[in-house]
Amino acid sequence: MKLKFEVGDEDFSLAGRASSELKGVLKRLGIGPDLVRRASIAMYEGEINMVIHAGGGVAEAEIEADRVVLTLIDAGPGIPDLSLAMTEGWSTAPDRFRELGFGAGMGLPNMRRNCDEFDIESEVGKGTSVRMVIRL
């Protein structure tokens, strides 16, 4: 089954909704706690990145018998240097978000750590897409 969420532009009140709804579904499916936790971290960090860095986007979760595929697609500014972006602690988050406790530069590394497959594609001026697979 597929869940689809519009993630808004700098709208923190809705950030976390995709992750929270995904969790609700996974728990109803009886998916083990550790997998639920990993999926929710991956989804949450992805959502937050779209809010902070890309002005929103679309998050999707496809749940299959043996895996969960998370896709986050935005039409934001893109990432010039992916390997730098994947470095722990590296962040370009503006101050107004840092004041709220975001921008520790751990989001992308945590996303990668919590899934079994991680692909990120980005083009400056076009946008970023992330695909994550968690095997059940």
Binding site: M1, K27, R28, L29, G30, I31, I63, A65, L136
Partner: peptide, 12 residues
Amino acid sequence: ALVLDPDMLKAL
């Protein structure tokens, strides 16, 4: 109590 069915495929 929230799990729909013990069989994950059925729950899906």
